[in-house]
Nucleic acid binder design. Sequence first.
DNA 1: CTGAAAGCGCTTACAG
DNA 2: CTGAAAGCGCTTACAG
Lengths: 407, 407
Amino acid sequence: MSSSSNEYVVKVKAGSEIMAQIMADQSGKSSESNVATSKKIRKKRSKKQQGASVSNKGTTSSGKRVGIREIARQAGVSVATVSMVLNNNPKITEATRQKVNKVIDRVGYRPNRLAQSLSGRYTRVISILMPTLRHAMADPYFGELISGICDRAARLGHKVMLEHAKPDFIRERRHIELFERRFVDGVLCIGFNDRHAFMKDFIENDHPMVVVNNMFPQWGLDHVVCDYRSGAEQVMTYLQQLGHKKIGLVHGAPEVFTAREIIEVYKRRMTTVTGGFDTSWMADGRFTEEHGAEATKKLLEAHPDMTAIFASNDKMAMGAIHYANRHGRSVPSDLSIVGFDDIQYTAFVNPTLTTVHLPLYELGVLACERLVERIRGKSERVREVLPTHLVLRESTSLAASYAPGVG
Amino acid sequence: MSSSSNEYVVKVKAGSEIMAQIMADQSGKSSESNVATSKKIRKKRSKKQQGASVSNKGTTSSGKRVGIREIARQAGVSVATVSMVLNNNPKITEATRQKVNKVIDRVGYRPNRLAQSLSGRYTRVISILMPTLRHAMADPYFGELISGICDRAARLGHKVMLEHAKPDFIRERRHIELFERRFVDGVLCIGFNDRHAFMKDFIENDHPMVVVNNMFPQWGLDHVVCDYRSGAEQVMTYLQQLGHKKIGLVHGAPEVFTAREIIEVYKRRMTTVTGGFDTSWMADGRFTEEHGAEATKKLLEAHPDMTAIFASNDKMAMGAIHYANRHGRSVPSDLSIVGFDDIQYTAFVNPTLTTVHLPLYELGVLACERLVERIRGKSERVREVLPTHLVLRESTSLAASYAPGVG
DNA sequence: CTGAAAGCGCTTACAG
DNA sequence: CTGAAAGCGCTTACAG
């Protein structure tokens, strides 16, 4: 075991170098179309194929993949007929269909989808476009949406591609290129805000696109979204029922429509209750744990008598609890905290988080469905709202007026 | 505002119905190739195009997309020349190149990549294959890997597709179809275990594939992986330095190689320290919070004198803390808990989690890089290990012998 | 260094 | 209901 562990050390060393290299290698030389390399590979491949003249499934004895023409020959019909069988064209007799299908199964033929898409009209691929928040994919919020999208897309016979909209991606119009170069039939946009005007380009060029869990009324974009307004109302009602009057808001970036919806509800409800409104009870937490903690600090310092904080997403709520815990405010006894999103792990943190459940998976499913309808030619506007509900857990309790130094 | 809120209620109603429908609609009728639908759309489209005879960028005055032949005509060269310019073929004069590029820019021409791939050899697409854990994408572990993959793939000029390997996906050999139908050039496998023998099919058919953060020596698959062994050693060393002797292990599924590595290290270290080993100190937490909590219950009931628990991933560690907190064991004073993975949010939970940092993003980058090399013809085995390190946070402390009822 | 022609593997009018 | 032929938009030997 000691010798293998030695080997281990060596490997790890190598690993370290690789790590350094990975992070250093930021020189983005476009490695596309290196002609020289291509040629080398080509030679290698063809040699390999000659060697393996075993007639695998889907290949002729010469090692070449079998095409529609070979199927036609073996079935004793024309290629057009085979194509029609492949596409379930009703003009084909049941007898012919079976005859052809038998050959297809026997040979293990698979149509080349590049040829299909080139001749036909569809790529049967959709793309998920999202901003380049570092490690965006690792955010369960995005993950949940994407899970729904992928599952439904597979069921609808579509493939899903992932795309990060970096600044230069947009500048070079690569988002439009996705369509122009025939990569995709449609796009789903997640995580953008009012400053991302490029989204208008899709409709202007008549490319199917649906916004997921946000809305852009000013641009008339199709969207599916969760009911943020109702969720916020439920939070405010609940906090007020618990006797909270001094409620702070840690909100998300106001250039996001849904973030503004929460702000609006909060303002209105605070005005009703306290009979007046003051922006010093609000702070921008920019959707992250770090900034959520900072915003909480700001609020708590300005208003030590605050008894509850409403955070517009779970990550900021986690940041708020983190900060509160470390500054003499125990949650929920001294300070109630409510989140928004119902990210899975919030049921396992300490204290577990009271939050608004967003049906993100289902929203992903719906978005995918509507997009595919669009691709298939349906032209009605898409404007759908999915219901939300409050989930009561441990981070909230009855309001007790806070006495500094006692809590 | 009250009228708009009325409208809102209506929308939400509709939403509820949709939700029900989404979840009910499990009848997977293959909606592919509905010929009738296709025709309708076709008509619609062509009409639209005639209407819009404004000469947009990239289209001729007749509304048709411009192709390589049109570029050749305008530049006064042959299509072959244009193609070579597009592919940076060194045979082309600088003068010709510029002349052609000028036309390309002016017209806004974008090569159709379906045609390119059909004629050429590459799709320039790779696929990420993962199991169908429900909401797998929402797991930050996968997310982090995928982030790395996507970022590097984009830089290498490749698109990324997402694929869930459901049982019937494999049964229908759709994983091989990915290559045979020319969807992708290569595949990255994440989250599989020894029972997923289908992974052998890729090498048998000579299709580029790299396993990400796991290994399958029995099948000789290429892989890139984090150094689980070293991570586990560090955890055991640290816990023993803190004076812990009664250490439990909540491990992951043993059909996963890396999970077995942790188990092995644990066993060996426990044997060294306690001078003997007993499986009652180990429990399977199956990588989830729920089962992690259950496993913790089992361990703690069997060994109330346990002072530390080593969990093989952060989610199980979260479950362990969750359970301990609710059963009179305060973390870390009564019970130290160590995780594995260093998922981002573990720095914000309460207590923050001591854990092993896995360079998952970097591993994703590396995996992508190695796969693309493979695709380009490099044939060396890929067998890389990236270093890991322990991150000390709040969930661990000096061992204090546990006195029931006192803690 | 460049051009005319064949070919990638399908689909789709258009005749029969 | 089926077949021969053109076409989708590129790339790549092969001649010049």
